Simulated assay, not measured.
Amino acid sequence: MSENKSRDLLPLLVMLESVEKILLYAKGFQTAKDFLWAEDQLRFNASLLLLSNVGENAGKISESTRTVYPTFPWKQVRGLRNRIAHDYTGIDFEMVFDIIQNHIPPLKTAIEVIVKEGLGNGFFDKNECEAAQNSLFYRHIDFKRLM
């Protein structure tokens, strides 16, 4: 974890990109079982990796940013990452689907708020955000909502 909040932008953007992909992969599924078995578990497994990625990058966020946003579920996001990483085959697919359906959309909004406020108050470098916008990696992020 960094102590310099100016370094928080890229991990937050990685989190946002991961969340956007999770929502894309789960779009249109009505049941956890359908999501689990879609394309021989391809979407489910990709989503698990992305959920883990969200948690990994949440751990890179500075303590000062975490303090400014105490309602963000920092501990839960990291905890899910640890559970996926250490008990991959024991993950409850219905729990994962519930998280994707009910907790990822508000998490996306919360990440967007942190980025937008950080850019607005000068804590984050707008040039760094513009460079990310031009990267192929961050192609699922709606940067217009952030800047």
Rank of each mutant, 00 (worst) to 15 (best):
27 K>Q: 15
84 I>Y: 08
42 L>G: 09
58 A>C: 12
69 Y>V: 00
42 L>N: 13
30 Q>M: 09
72 F>G: 00
54 V>R: 04
62 S>C: 07
71 T>P: 01
58 A>S: 09
51 L>K: 01
81 R>G: 04
67 T>I: 06
33 K>W: 15
61 I>A: 04
71 T>K: 11
74 W>N: 01
51 L>C: 04
46 A>M: 14
43 R>A: 09
95 M>A: 11
58 A>M: 04
59 G>M: 03
25 Y>K: 07
42 L>M: 14
33 K>L: 15
35 F>S: 01
57 N>Y: 04
75 K>Q: 12
78 R>V: 01
35 F>H: 02
50 L>V: 10
53 N>E: 10
75 K>A: 08
43 R>M: 11
35 F>R: 01
61 I>V: 11
34 D>I: 10
85 A>I: 14
46 A>I: 03
78 R>T: 02
66 R>F: 02
43 R>L: 14
31 T>L: 15
27 K>S: 08
35 F>T: 00
47 S>R: 09
71 T>V: 07
32 A>G: 14
53 N>P: 08
66 R>G: 01
32 A>L: 08
70 P>R: 00
30 Q>G: 15
73 P>Y: 07
77 V>G: 02
28 G>E: 05
30 Q>C: 13
33 K>R: 14
54 V>I: 12
45 N>S: 13
68 V>T: 12
87 D>K: 10
84 I>P: 07
65 T>Q: 02
42 L>H: 15
62 S>T: 08
39 E>D: 15
68 V>C: 12
91 I>C: 14
86 H>M: 07
47 S>Y: 06
44 F>W: 05
64 S>V: 07
31 T>D: 10
32 A>N: 09
71 T>D: 12
60 K>Q: 12
77 V>Y: 00
91 I>M: 15
74 W>D: 02
51 L>S: 04
35 F>G: 02
30 Q>E: 11
31 T>I: 11
92 D>Q: 03
75 K>H: 06
68 V>P: 08
47 S>E: 12
85 A>D: 11
76 Q>L: 06
51 L>R: 05
28 G>T: 06
78 R>K: 07
74 W>S: 01
70 P>F: 02
93 F>V: 03
69 Y>K: 00
52 S>F: 07
33 K>P: 10
54 V>M: 06
51 L>M: 06
37 W>K: 06
46 A>P: 04
26 A>E: 01
50 L>R: 13
49 L>W: 12
72 F>Q: 02
45 N>F: 13
43 R>S: 10
35 F>Q: 01
85 A>N: 13
48 L>I: 02
58 A>R: 00
81 R>T: 08
25 Y>F: 12
45 N>A: 14
84 I>C: 11
26 A>V: 03
25 Y>M: 08
84 I>H: 06
93 F>I: 06
26 A>W: 00
85 A>K: 14
44 F>M: 05
25 Y>H: 10
40 D>E: 14
64 S>R: 09
37 W>R: 05
